[in-house]
Amino acid sequence: MISRKIVLRFAAPLVDQPIIYHLVKDYDLSFNILKASISPQEEGVLVFELTGERENYDAGIQYLKSLDVQIQPFSEDVRRDENKCTHCGVCVVLCPTKALSVDRATMRVNFDSDQCIACGACIRACPPRAMEMVF
């Protein structure tokens, strides 16, 4: 059994396709959705944890690739440029998982990348643009 957190990005034509249904039914995989969104341009972003037997998992990933779904491991997704962050803290209320939080003693902003689900809410809202998506 393996279990990985991954980010899927898919273009408009795929948004209304039952992709996850096929992963479950045809490849015997289970999933836990961490974050799903469809942007105004109808590009879908899905962050989820995918679990199953190794060969089923690999076959499922191949199926996604055949549909032109962009796949990336999600753990390295968002990084903070420590030289740019001013520790203002304006990001913390936008972070859905509290990966960004203020240490009330030092009043500095902590970034716990293990908690980050790479939703991207902090990226454009950071005034000095210290948060970046890494592909």
Binding site: T86, H87, C88, G89, V92, V93, V102, R104, M107, R108
Partner: peptide, 25 residues
């Protein structure tokens, strides 16, 4: 405000700062 939460009209609201207290310090 600096505690991270305030109560406004009976609702608890998270707070955020646009200025950096740690840099001010």
């Amino acid at each position: 405000l600096r505690s991270g939460r305030i109560t406004l009209m009976g609702k608890e609201i998270p707070t955020a700062s646009m200025s950096s207290y740690s840099k001010a310090r």
